[in-house]
Design a protein around this nucleic acid. Structure first.
Lengths: 202, 202, 202, 202
DNA sequence: AATGAATGAGCGTTCATTCAT
DNA sequence: CATGAATGAACGCTCATTCAT
């Protein structure tokens, strides 16, 4: 009931096609965000027909999950490799290695992470809801530094770190087994914040 | 020729209408996520006609921004109030107060935060891409605890805290003025992680 | 997020719009069949936008049902009117009136009936599966006429009548309360066929 | 480089393949209707690849026609066999035999007939447009019975029979050579209806 | 003869946005 | 101010059909 127009070698190793679709999708997601990227743009990017997409993925959601899988595995490998280089008993070194590797690995892929994870359109983040809270903590940290209450070398980064750490901990407490109650959670977060600013002078 | 169907005082103080729309929207966003909530559902929820929405907001995005504003201000007030109760020179106390207040305040509004911030549909979060990274760090922390390398009371929460803190710091470094380079960032994050696990035994 | 192109008075009495859509749909269904008529063609025919369709009908199926309703009512009125003209006690006359009215009424709307009922594309019917059966019965009737076994003035029409009548009776027996068994059904149909050919000579 | 997945004798006598496809198709058509059955489902059902379908049929329509042919021939055989058992000169017996055989034969295959003929999805028929007309005729017949105007043993079946017979006759008059005009058609149908209710009392 | 990956036109449906009333 | 009928671009998805292997 339809008539063809193009003729061109078509069949490819299936894994390859799938990968090409994922790559094209990621490229577009990073550029325009997930929601605003259409299936048609993805297939155009991979130079296949629209219908071909559905040969490899059942929906955009499905593709996103596949992207997430691939991404997670890649990250973990990077971090593990760094830790494995440390001597078996150097625990401080291991934690340092974890931190440095994680920073490195995420610096290269934070946008990919966010797209895969939150589906966030790019050029968000600024003007965040959170900024006023972070700013406020930043001011607190700076004030403390000024009077020698603690030693924090990069109060801006620290403020962000503490805020997002806290946010993550609170978030996780809601989703997980919920064993942790408000007070316990506050205690731990409090301790982490205090430790993070180094030795304090009361 | 046409007969009116509703009879009811229609004009309302504009601020009130706006608020009703925002409340209705938030309610729906929390229940079903942002993307799947239509303007019509919002106006139905606020008991006004579809067109009325555009009298108060220029788009869904605009509404989301307003929601974010309102939310941020509410949060900040809560945190500030807690800090202001502390003696002027008790810096440790101030930081503690910040941490505890922030935890409290977010526990009550984390879903609202996420909806306004990420537009996330509810009941996501589990099965996250990040989980495998957090799990890995958790195992590292536990191993260190087992051999007495450090003192961490709640390794699960701590792992989440450190991971999300790190993630936030990396993220911010991309968006901001970018003054911070890879090494500096790694240095600070490393230090924050080490401090967070308390005194370490080398 | 979109930009308008046309401006033109838009609002109409709702019943009218609905009717216009139904008329446009019927026109197209008759011309091209139900399956091959798209919603877009229908809305074009009614000179409204595609989306408007869904303001009045929830789907093509829904429209078809509405068309069926309207059609059924119209038919029944026509037949009832004809019968009501007959004297109260003239039963033969009433049955005659029914037959003639039904023929008349259907002659004007058989295509509409079929479209609404079967969704049939036009230019079917010929080359029907049934034809060989009808042909066979026709030959039987003619043969009987030739030897004076019965009196059938229009054997072709009669063959069609008996065949479709039989077919309908069998069909209904499957759907209905199923009280009628094979033998009973065969008995009645047999009798109807015999009566239909007039007095027979054994 | 590619490895075969199935190993199984592939080539089959062409007629057999064709039949298997037809059987698989019919099975699916009866279960789900024609329109909702895809070529892929048919080929899966026949355990061949999608492309193989087009080796035996040029389209779905073509397959449907083949199905119709096969069906018609099977039916006709059944009816002919019944008639041939009657004595050569027993015309009434022949017509009786036709009626009974046709009923029998259709009872076993009405669904197949409809699928092949109308492509109808199963479990339609109820709630038909026609029902109100049939109901109306049924009431007329019952009323006549009550006053002794005629003798009809099964008014429900008779109503259906007369209605569908009439419908078929009208339908055929539109498709055929059209030699028959409105009045002639009405005359014949009228006569058939009157004959069908047996001797009437004026 | 048989395969099945690839095609792509086409469809039904949604919904943010407009504007005549 | 408020309404809600109307708009129409856009989207996800289907599936009959083709053709290189």
């Amino acid at each position: 009931m339809r008539t063809p127009t193009k003729l061109r070698p078509r069949t490819k190793p299936p894994g390859e096609r799938r990968d090409e679709l994922m790559n094209a999708a990621l490229r577009l997601f990073l550029k325009q965000g997930v929601a605003t990227t259409t299936i048609e743009q993805i297939t155009s990017g991979a130079e296949v027909a629209k219908g071909t997409f559905y040969l490899y993925f059942s929906s955009k959601e499905d593709l996103l999950a596949a992207l997430g899988d691939r991404f997670g595995k890649k990250l973990l490998e990077g971090i593990k490799a760094a830790i494995d280089k440390m001597p078996k008993n150097d625990w401080k070194g291991k934690l340092s290695a974890w931190a440095r590797a994680a920073v490195t690995v995420y610096l290269d892929s934070i946008r990919e992470h966010d797209v895969v994870f939150y589906g966030s359109r790019p050029a968000k983040r600024e003007g965040l809801v959170d900024n006023i809270i972070v700013d406020h903590l930043f001011e607190l940290l700076e004030a403390g530094i000024a009077v020698g209450a603690w030693t924090v070398e990069e109060p801006r980064v620290t403020a962000v770190f503490l805020f997002t750490g806290l946010h993550g901990a609170v978030d996780a407490s809601q989703t997980n087994g919920k064993r942790i109650n408000r007070t316990q959670l506050a205690d731990i977060v409090e301790q982490l914040c205090l430790r993070s600013v180094g030795p304090t002078i009361d």
